[in-house]
C-alpha cells in the first residue's frame, strides 16, 4: 500500500507533491483546530504572503535562466518606499502604483546588463545591489517611516468578488507567467539559455538579450510585489525586511525550479510560497512551542526537499 502510494507520487510532478503536502497539512491542522480551515483564515494566509508568491514568480524565471538574485528583498523595500513617497507627496495614486514596476524593470535591466554583457556573475552583481539598495535606502529616508498615506492607496485591501486583490494578483500573474514560459518563443529561450547556454547560442538564441529581458521582467514583477507589500498596512517601514530574499529563493527552489537552471515551472514556486505561509500559520494553530517553531519549519523544508529528491531519483 505504502509502496504503491509512493510510486504514484514518484511519477507525478513536484507541483502535485506540493498540492498533496498542502492538502495533508490543511487536513491535519484542520482536524486539530477547525478554525484553521475557516474561509477567513485561509484568505488571510494567502493575502499576507501573496507578495512573496508574486516575487517568487520572477525569481523562478531568473533561476530557470541559470542565474540568481539575492537583492530582491532590498529591491522590494526600496520600491515600496518610493511608491509610498509618491503617494504621500501628492502624486496621483496610479503613478504611485505604476512607478515601482517601471523603476524595478529599469534597475534590474541595469543588473541584467552587468550580468549579460559585462559578464559579472549574477550572485556577485546582485550581492552588490543588495548592499547598494539597502544602504541607499537608509541614506535616502534617514530611517523615517512613511505614514499618512492617502485614502484609496491601499491596493492590497481592495476586494473583487469578495476575494482580496493580492490573491487575484498571485493567481493572475502565476497564470500569465506560466503561459509566457510555455507558449512563447521567449519562454523557450529562457529554458534553452538555462539548460545549455552553448547550445542555445548555436541555435541562434541571444544569450545576453534573454538574460536582460528575464531580469527586466523580474524587476517589474518585483515592483508588483513591492506595491502589494506597501499597500497592505497604513505605514511603510524604511528598512529592508531581513532575510526576505532567502524566503523567496526557497519558495522558488522548493517549488521545483532547479538551481542549476533550465528546469522548473512557476506554478511550483507559487505552491511552495503558499505551503510556507500555511506552515507558519499552522504551527501557531498546532500550539507548537514558540521557541521550537523555527526548528520545525526547518525540518518541514528539509523534508519537502528530500521527498522531492527521492521522487526525482525514482523517476530517474
Amino acid at each position: 500500500m505504502r509502496s504503491r502510494l509512493s510510486h504514484t507520487l514518484g511519477t507525478l510532478g513536484q507541483e502535485i507533491l506540493l498540492v498533496v503536502v498542502i492538502l495533508a497539512l490543511f487536513a491535519v491542522v484542520g482536524s486539530v483546530n477547525a478554525r484553521f480551515l475557516s474561509q477567513h483564515n485561509l484568505t488571510s494566509i494567502f493575502v499576507g504572503n501573496a507578495y512573496i508568491a508574486v516575487a517568487a514568480i520572477g525569481m523562478s524565471l531568473v533561476i530557470i535562466s541559470g542565474n540568481i538574485d539575492v537583492s530582491i528583498g532590498a529591491l522590494i523595500g526600496v520600491l515600496a518606499v518610493i511608491s509610498g513617497l509618491l503617494a504621500t507627496n501628492g502624486y496621483p495614486i496610479w503613478l504611485a502604483w505604476l512607478a515601482p514596476l517601471v523603476l524595478g524593470a529599469l534597475i534590474n535591466t541595469l543588473v541584467g546588463c552587468l550580468i549579460a554583457y559585462a559578464k559579472v556573475p549574477s550572485i556577485i552583481a546582485t550581492l552588490a545591489m543588495l548592499s547598494i539598495l539597502s544602504g541607499g535606502l537608509i541614506t535616502f529616508t534617514g530611517g523615517r517611516w512613511i505614514s499618512g498615506l492617502p485614502a484609496g492607496y491601499q491596493l492590497a485591501q481592495f476586494r473583487l468578488l469578495d476575494v482580496p486583490s493580492p490573491v487575484w494578483f498571485m493567481i493572475g500573474m502565476t497564470i500569465l507567467a506560466a503561459l509566457l514560459m510555455r507558449y512563447t518563443a521567449f519562454g523557450r529561450s529562457v529554458y534553452a539559455v538555462g539548460s545549455n547556454a552553448e547550445a542555445a547560442r548555436a541555435s541562434g538564441i541571444s544569450h545576453a538579450a534573454t538574460v536582460v529581458k528575464v531580469f527586466a521582467i523580474h524587476g517589474a514583477i518585483g515592483g508588483v510585489a513591492a506595491v502589494l507589500f506597501a499597500t497592505q498596512l497604513q505605514v511603510i517601514q524604511s528598512t529592508v525586511p531581513v532575510g526576505l530574499e532567502l524566503v523567496i529563493i526557497t519558495a522558488s527552489v522548493v517549488g521545483g525550479v532547479s538551481i542549476l537552471g533550465g528546469v522548473g515551472t512557476v506554478f511550483g514556486s507559487t505552491l511552495a510560497a503558499i505551503l510556507f505561509a500555511a506552515i507558519g500559520s499552522s504551527l501557531i494553530f498546532l500550539n507548537v512551542s514558540a521557541y521550537w517553531l523555527r526548528a520545525v519549519q526547518g525540518v518541514l523544508i528539509l523534508a519537502t526537499v528530500l521527498a522531492d529528491m527521492a521522487r526525482r531519483r525514482r523517476t530517474g
Partner: peptide, 24 residues
C-alpha cells in the same frame, strides 16, 4: 501565547491575524 514578529510590519500583521483566526 506569545508570538515573534521580528521588527517587521507585515510579519507582525500576519501574526496578529493568525492569533485572531486561531482564538476567535
Amino acid at each position: 501565547e506569545t508570538v515573534e514578529a521580528q521588527e517587521d510590519n507585515i510579519l507582525s500583521f500576519n501574526q496578529a491575524q493568525t492569533l485572531i483566526n486561531k482564538y476567535g
